[in-house]
Amino acid sequence: MTTQQTAPPKAGAAATAPAGRVNRRVRRLTGLDLVVVSLMVAIPTLAVLVLVWFPAVASVLLSFTNWDGVGSIGDIDWIGGTNYVNVATNYPPFWPALQHNIIWFAVLFLFATPVGMFFAVLLDKEIRFTRFYQTAIYLPVVLSLALTGFVWQLLYSRDQGLINGLLGTQIDWYGDPNYNLWAAIVATCWKHIGYIMLLYLAGLKAVDASLREAASIDGANERQTFFRIVFPVMRPINVIVLVITVIESLRAFDLVWVINKGRNGLELIAALVTANVVGEASRIGFGSAMATIMLAISSVFVAIYVTIVTREERQS
């Protein structure tokens, strides 16, 4: 649920296609080898199926019940799509939350991503101190989002924060619903820009140097080279960054949870799900309906992502 937990894409997915492979068939295996190979596949697969896929399916099923989280699962009443109707029509925080998730995504994609790419382009050059610059921009990426919330609170606090101290204002950046979403997004961008920069730095390194050489021989300037040659070649990484940004925006949780449990202007779908299923409330069916909506949205993008990064397997 933090930025880091998304699998970074294979940077040079397109650029580094593996050499043609000869089939290495499993059927050659015999006896003990077969047992060992089976175990090597079975144990990790079981872990992923039991701890990730089964719960995902179960959540979808629970969303059609009115279970309150107490007692045995056998007592559950099936109530069809009632939870979904209630989420959409009878739960005021839902639509603002969806809107906040979309704003979150829009800022990350339209602001943080270009900025990260821009830094990557600047730092991709062989200039002095590039290690220092990269380190500084990348440093926030290693911190947890929960901690990010705290670090920024020192700047944002109404009475003790630096920003109000410098501006002479009295704005409660985390508390005022007019500002707090933006304040939280700025803190997220602080982490996200470095992350995007990393991805593009790797991507740029993967661009064939001879391409640029050719372009510069043809008299193209840096900007032309970037937009006409480099950017198109990085298409796979662009799509992957888009997908990651969508998923991170959808899963955004830690930061708003430590700020105010995702209330009062900081409603996000993930926080609403948690508030309904974890809290004293325990509206499991209701919360699961929102979780299923999250799953549905993310699965579209997960599918895109998986298709891109495994394409080469299929080709080979």
């Binding site: 309150d68 005021p92 925080p93 619903p177 209330r263 009062n264 202007g265 508030a275 309904n276 809290g279 004293e280 409330a281 325990s282 509206r283």
Partner: peptide, 18 residues
Amino acid sequence: RPDFASTVMIPAIQQFIS
């Protein structure tokens, strides 16, 4: 009920205040 207090009344009162 705790579920009413926490998932309905808390957001509602906060909504009223803002």
